[in-house]
Each structure stands twice: as structure tokens, then as C-alpha cells.
Amino acid sequence: MAQMKFLCDAERCIECNGCVTACKNANETEWGIQRRRVVTLDDGKPSEVSISVACMHCDDAPCMAVCPTECFYKTDDGIVLHDKDICIGCGYCLYACPFGAPQFPQQGAFGERGKMDKCTFCAGGPAESPEEEYEKYGANRISEGKLPLCAEMCSTKALLAGDAETVSDIFRQRVVYRGHEDGAWSPVDKASHPDTSANLTTSSVTHQADSLAYDAARKG
């Protein structure tokens, strides 16, 4: 059984906000609700890095654990969804979420927040008709055999979505051909690659890894 995950390859993320906008396009969330966001750390410094984050569909989702209404549920694909009809807008999921994923259309007196909205992994949510589903939760691409639009449209294929094992495999292969010394945890040391032509001979491998990313994005 698939366990759906996102993976953002920070070496590729350029903060173009394509994912944020693709999400808007797929789900038409209203002004102020961005299910996905891009956070740039150390902006303007050599160590700058950008990371695209949304709901990570955690294995042990804190939002589910704290929700007073139990509006959350996990699909067979490991996607954390919620039922807006049961949501009361208490905000607890936001307090608990490690990634700031849940959002609310308002922030009013008497705790009036409206219904929580968050990334659905483009898997829609509980509804009785496609119209209702789209209105409340946005697209259900998963039911069409497609992956979330944010990852599919990522400008540099930095954002991967799909089965946890598949996306990890793609990422691992990228790390290998990038030539990091200790996994993905070091900057690439140019000195250790005095002859880059050696790398070119491995291009079939690298090409494979990259097209895998492409396929993962395309096929789900």
C-alpha cells in the first residue's frame, strides 16, 4: 500500500512559488489561504536555502491527535484528510502541526476562524458529489490517477510527490550523482571531482534518476 509523501529537494528549490500557485490553480483556495508555502532561510546569504512546505501527511499526524472533533482521517494511501462539515475551526490542528499547514479563512473574535483548510495531497475530501467536493476541498487528482499539481508543476522538479519509497529512491539517486561526500549533508566538494568527464560517463545513470523524477511526477 502506498504511503504518500512530499519531498522537497532543497538543492533544487528556487522559491519560484510555482507550487504555491499550482495549488491555487488546482484547488482555487480563496485569497489568504495558501496550502503550500515556500520558506527561504538565510535570505540573501551564501547559506540561503528555500524549502517548499505544505501538509506533510505525517505518519502520526499531530493534527489528528489533537482535533476535538475527530474530523481528520487517513486514507489508504496515507493521506491525511479532514471533513469540513465536522471541523469547528478551533485552531488546535494549527497549534500542533509542525509545519504550519492548517489555515483558516478568518481570524475573528470569539474564535471565529471558519473551516480549516489544508493540503489534501490533491485527494479532495468527503463529499457526496464532485461539485461539493471541489467546492469544499478542491481537486481530487488522486482519484484520476494523478499526483498533486504542485509537485507535477514544480519548475525544477525539486518538489516530489508520491509513494514515500519512490520519492526517497529518486532523491537518493540524485544525491549519489551529485557526489556529496556524506550523503546529502555536505556541500559538493569540487576538489573531489577534478575530472568531471568521469561524471559524464555516468550520465546514463543520472539521466535515469532524473527521468524517474519525471515519471514519478507524471505517473504517480
Partner: peptide, 30 residues
Amino acid sequence: PSAEIGQAVGTVDADTWRQVKDGDNSIDSR
């Protein structure tokens, strides 16, 4: 959450992680 984001974000070095946790100097598209 560290494990979740470890799975979710690759190629970030230890220094950056420290910073991720501190939340210093970050810019958000929201």
C-alpha cells in the same frame, strides 16, 4: 516532526537544521 521533515526535505545541512529549528531570518511566501 524532525523525522517527518527529514523525510520531506533533502539536502539540508546540519547548520541549516539548527536554523530551521530556531526560525531565524526566514522569509515566507505567505
